[in-house]
Amino acid sequence: VKVFRALYTFEPRTPDELYFEEGDIIYITDMSDTNWWKGTSKGRTGLIPSNYVAEQ
């Protein structure tokens, strides 16, 4: 598990995607895809765009 911080707010387009706000901490559990990672924030899990976060 790696810890990342959201650089921007992300509004999901599908139920599989995770909503998060700029500054949120996201725990990444799967980075197997280059563009979409699986992450958890505020008790919810979903896909996030990798270019919206920076490693802490």
Results as ranks from 00 to 15, higher is better:
Phe10Ser: 13
Arg44Glu: 06
Gly23Ala: 04
Tyr27Pro: 00
Glu11Thr: 14
Thr29Leu: 14
Ala54Ile: 15
Glu21Val: 10
Lys38Met: 15
Tyr52Gln: 06
Thr34Lys: 15
Gly43Met: 04
Arg5Phe: 14
Gly43Asp: 06
Ile25Ser: 04
Val3Glu: 10
Thr29Trp: 15
Tyr19Val: 04
Tyr19Ser: 12
Ser50Pro: 12
Ala6Gly: 05
Val3Thr: 11
Glu22Gly: 06
Gly46Ile: 02
Lys2Phe: 12
Pro15Cys: 09
Asp16Ser: 10
Asn51His: 14
Ser32Thr: 14
Gly46Lys: 01
Glu21Ser: 09
Ile48Phe: 15
Trp37Phe: 11
Ile25Arg: 04
Ser32Glu: 08
Tyr19Lys: 10
Tyr19Leu: 05
Thr9Glu: 05
Gly43Ser: 05
Lys2Gly: 09
Val1Asp: 11
Val1Trp: 12
Ser41Leu: 15
Trp36Val: 05
Leu47Val: 07
Pro12Asp: 03
Glu21Phe: 07
Ser41Tyr: 09
Thr34Glu: 15
Tyr27Cys: 14
Glu21Tyr: 06
Ala6Asp: 02
Ile25Asn: 03
Ala54Leu: 13
Thr14Val: 08
Ser41Gly: 04
Ile26Leu: 13
Val53His: 02
Asp33Ala: 06
Asp16Pro: 04
Pro15Phe: 08
Lys38Thr: 14
Ile48Leu: 14
Ala6Glu: 02
Gln56Phe: 15
Phe4Trp: 09
Asp30His: 05
Met31Cys: 12
Trp36Tyr: 07
Ile28Glu: 00
Ser50Tyr: 06
Tyr27His: 08
Asp16Ile: 08
Ala54Cys: 13
Asn35Phe: 15
Gly46Glu: 00
Val53Tyr: 02
Tyr52Val: 08
Gln56Leu: 15
Glu22Asn: 06
Lys42Asp: 09
Asp30Phe: 04
Ser32Arg: 11
Ser50Phe: 06
Asn35Asp: 14
Arg44Ile: 09
Leu18His: 01
Thr40Ile: 14
Tyr52Ala: 15
Phe20Tyr: 02
Thr45Arg: 08
Thr14Ala: 11
Thr40Lys: 08
Ile26Glu: 00
Phe20Asn: 02
Gly43His: 05
Thr34Ala: 15
Pro12Lys: 03
Thr45Trp: 14
Ile48Asp: 01
Ser32Ile: 11
Pro49Ala: 05
Lys38Ile: 15
Glu55Pro: 14
Leu47Gln: 05
Leu47Pro: 01
Ala54Gln: 13
Ser41Asn: 11
Glu55Met: 11
Ser50Leu: 04
Ile26Phe: 02
Thr40Pro: 01
Thr9Phe: 05
Ile25Asp: 07
Ser32Ala: 10
Phe20Asp: 00
Ile28His: 00
Asp33Thr: 07
Ala54Phe: 11
Leu7Asn: 04
Leu47Tyr: 12
Thr34Cys: 12
Leu7Trp: 03
Ser41Phe: 12
Ser50Asp: 02
Leu47Trp: 14
Glu21Gly: 05
Phe4Gln: 02
Asp16Asn: 12
Thr29Gly: 04
Arg13Thr: 14
Gln56Thr: 14
Leu18Thr: 01
Met31Tyr: 07
Ala54Trp: 10
Arg5Asn: 05
Phe20Arg: 01
Leu7Met: 10
Thr9Gln: 06
Val3Tyr: 10
Val1Met: 13
Tyr8Trp: 11
Glu55Trp: 10
Gly39Val: 02
Asp24Phe: 04
Gly39Ser: 01
Leu47Ala: 05
Thr34Met: 13
Leu7Gln: 04
Glu17Phe: 12
Trp37Pro: 01
Lys42Gly: 14
